[in-house]
Design a binder for these strands. Structure first.
Length: 257
DNA sequence: AATTGGTTCAACCGCCCGAAA
DNA sequence: TTTTCGGGCGGTTGAACCAAT
């Protein structure tokens, strides 16, 4: 039998959307047949979970979400579906794509392995703290999230005419933190909306005060002068969103002395 | 205006696991 | 106990898009 592959049409989307809405999820092979879709059950499941599902959140990954992804990847590795559970509305596919297109790209530009100590330390002691600072400085601050902490992303879909753009501060699921065993991490700070106390954030506080001592922290992580120079001279990074001009200024303040 | 090279992301593939037959 | 099947997962691909030349 002929099974269609490739991009889904609006008509196929509509058929699957209506079918799942009236029959529920699961039994995807049977669903594909019953709905009259010339698609594999797998393809239907994927389309629903990654695109059509009412909880799928669209739009750019926020600073908070970036921070969560980095922190969770530290703890869980490439367990995309597990990471996705901490980011309501985001799919494992989306997170995996973010990691591959943004994070791995940074490693390539630094000419180091994404799993190397150098790169992991760069993330942990430079990139993540800067993200955290930017979150605090922006309107997306954690205090703002705390105000909205009881707001969970409402169901939405591109097929739903009432669909509105996601609220910037409504992605936090207050139920997640209570079910996670991950502790003392940024994910907890964000999920629980409490004041920052994690190791990473503590280190950031130290680094962020621009005191000379903090260079010790960084050099203790194994950076030599050349590596630091590469970091500082890494101006292409300005263009891809991970570092902004303020970041580069910050790095220069920290490392050029 | 056409071409080229890089980036993004939706979709597929292959493997694995657990439940049911 | 073995086989089959549905579903989940991580890795990979390729079309669409965009910016630079």
């Amino acid at each position: 039998m002929d099974v269609r592959k490739g991009p889904w049409t609006a008509e196929e989307d509509s058929i699957l959307f209506n079918y799942v809405n009236s029959h529920g999820e699961g039994r995807w092979n049977a669903a594909a047949c019953s709905a009259g879709l010339k698609r594999s059950g797998k393809s239907c499941r994927l389309r629903w979970l990654n695109y059509l599902g009412p909880s799928v959140k669209r739009g750019n990954i926020t600073l908070q979400e970036q921070l969560l992804i980095l922190d969770l990847h530290f703890q869980l590795g490439n367990r995309w579906s597990k990471i996705a559970r901490y980011l309501p509305g985001r799919t494992d596919n989306e997170i995996k794509n973010y990691w591959r297109t943004r994070v791995q790209k940074q490693a390539r530009q630094l000419k180091c392995d994404v799993n190397s100590k150098e790169f992991r330390d760069t993330m942990r002691y430079v990139w993540m703290p800067r993200l955290f600072e930017r979150i605090q400085a922006s309107n997306d601050s954690i205090s703002a999230i705390a105000i909205d902490s009881d707001v969970v992303q409402p169901p939405q879909s591109h097929l739903d005419p009432t669909h509105s753009s996601p609220s910037k501060s409504s992605w936090v699921n207050p139920h997640v933190a209570s079910t996670t065993s991950i502790s003392n991490s940024i994910s907890d700070q964000v999920q629980l909306q409490v004041s920052p106390v994690s190791d990473v954030v503590e280190n950031f506080k130290l680094i962020g005060t621009s005191e000379k001592d903090e260079m010790v922290i960084l050099t203790d992580q194994g950076y030599d002068g050349d590596t630091m120079n590469e970091l500082i001279g890494w101006e292409e990074s300005l263009e891809n969103g991970l570092w902004n001009e303020e970041d580069m200024w910050f790095l220069q303040q920290q490392f050029s002395g």
